[in-house]
Design a protein around this nucleic acid. Structure first.
Length: 388
DNA sequence: TTTCCTACATCGATAAACTG
DNA sequence: CAGTTTATCGATGTAGGAAA
């Protein structure tokens, strides 16, 4: 059966008139009778628009820098572009931004030590191949820039040029293109700050996109975005089905961001049967992650452990994760003592994520989360048993 | 990670019943 | 009679697991 282009308007044979009806919150309502199908359809459209969308006209405000951790900034003009960077490309971009003085007026060569990208571990043979393609990808990025007062003009510029990888020095260097520079430095309005530590810890390119987008929308939260626009800005052509998009992009990204300094929730607005818009409620966590691990008294030795161990950002993430999973301070400490190295810590985060998700969604009520978590960790890291 | 599959939920269209 | 609600059906979107 062909779809009625005038939804909600149907011909009533017994009355020889067009009937308008629409469902609200699952309840079908009659909206009167009309002589034409178009009129009936318009009645439906109008009735639907009753909870009219609030026009957001607040002007953009300058975000205050929170805390003393390093931040990078970019104009919202750049953020609201459908560019698709790989994870490595996105990280390199962040590192370049970090090297860029905020008051720079001309494009200079920026140098990024490779170890900031990949850590102290040496880069294997294939590692350089990845880097090559990442730099190529970055060099190929084009952005569309606004042309003031001229609606029909069009300005497309490369993001960077002259990217260089010097394996001898262990550096990457390059220039931002002069056209783009005004959107990266001397920013006065409509720009967004990102935390370098957060950005570099992000594990998926989609989350990167979400990070900047949601951060730039935070000041006008709640924000309602049409699904088509959201997809365009985050995953582009992928996921023709919204449910696939939600599962593979939206949910993982929001979950990962909530592990960082965000508190994001969202509501789906449906148009008919399909999800039409997504309303985000975005907040930054007031008190992020405690910098220090508070250690309990060591009763056996009768001494006060006064160790003030500075935790790496990754260790802090593991700490908060385990705290969410209701582990005691002692258990958290034990895990952090035994599990060392970026790879291992990341593994902990990865392993415990499903547990946390199940716990938070109450998929397994009545379960002892802490015990389950410890069992899981002990099976993955036998050393935790050994140190018992 | 992405696509496919299936049970299920919800929608619009329609006929029919209800109300004053 | 005119307007509205109820019951039902086929179509289509969705959730969640399986398969690729």
């Amino acid at each position: 059966m062909p779809k009625n282009p005038f939804a909600g308007a149907t011909f009533d044979k017994s009355r020889q008139k067009w009937k308008a009806q629409a469902r609200f919150a699952g309840v079908l309502k009659s909206l009167g009778y009309y002589n034409t199908q178009v009129e009936a359809h318009e009645a439906v459209v109008q009735a639907r628009q009753q909870p009219a969308e609030l026009a957001i006209t607040r002007r953009s405000i300058v975000e205050a820098s929170g805390g003393n951790s390093p931040t990078v900034a970019q104009s919202n003009v750049l953020i609201e572009q459908p560019w698709a960077l790989t994870l490595v490309e996105a990280r390199i971009f962040v590192l370049f931004l970090q090297q860029l003085p905020r008051d720079e007026t001309e494009s200079r060569r920026l140098v990024v030590p490779l170890k900031e990208l990949v850590g102290a571990t040496p880069i294997g043979g294939r590692g350089y191949q990845y880097l090559h393609s990442a730099l190529e990808g970055l060099a190929a990025v084009q952005v569309t820039l606004p042309v003031p007062n001229r609606q029909h003009d069009w300005h497309r510029a490369p993001l960077v040029h002259s990217m260089k990888l010097d394996s001898g020095q262990g550096t990457i260097s390059g220039y931002f293109s002069p056209d783009v520079l005004p959107y990266l430095t001397n920013l006065a309005e409509n720009f967004t700050l990102g935390q370098v530590a957060d950005l570099l810890s992000i594990k998926s390119p989609t989350t990167h996109r979400f990070y900047w987008l949601l951060k730039s929308w935070e000041f006008r939260s709640p924000v309602t975005v049409p699904v088509a626009r959201l997809k365009e800005l985050t995953t582009g052509q992928a996921y023709p089905q919204y449910s696939d998009y939600r599962r593979n992009a939206l949910i993982p990204a929001v979950a990962e961001l909530n592990e960082l300094s965000f508190e994001i929730s969202y509501k789906e607005h449906k148009l008919g049967r399909s999800v039409d818009k997504v309303e985000f409620s975005i907040k930054s966590k007031a008190r992020p992650i405690p910098k220090q691990l508070i250690l309990p008294l060591d009763k056996e030795k009768g001494t006060v452990v006064t160790v003030v161990s500075e935790l790496t950002p990754l260790q802090q993430k593991v700490q908060t994760r385990l705290q969410k999973l209701k582990l005691t301070q002692a258990q958290v400490k034990k895990v952090l003592d035994v599990v060392v190295g970026e790879e291992q810590l990341t593994k902990v985060l990865k392993e415990t994520y499903p547990v946390l998700r199940d716990f938070e969604t109450k998929a397994k009520p009545g379960e002892n989360v802490a015990a389950a978590t410890m069992a899981l960790l002990k099976s993955t890291f036998p050393a935790i048993w050994a140190s018992n």
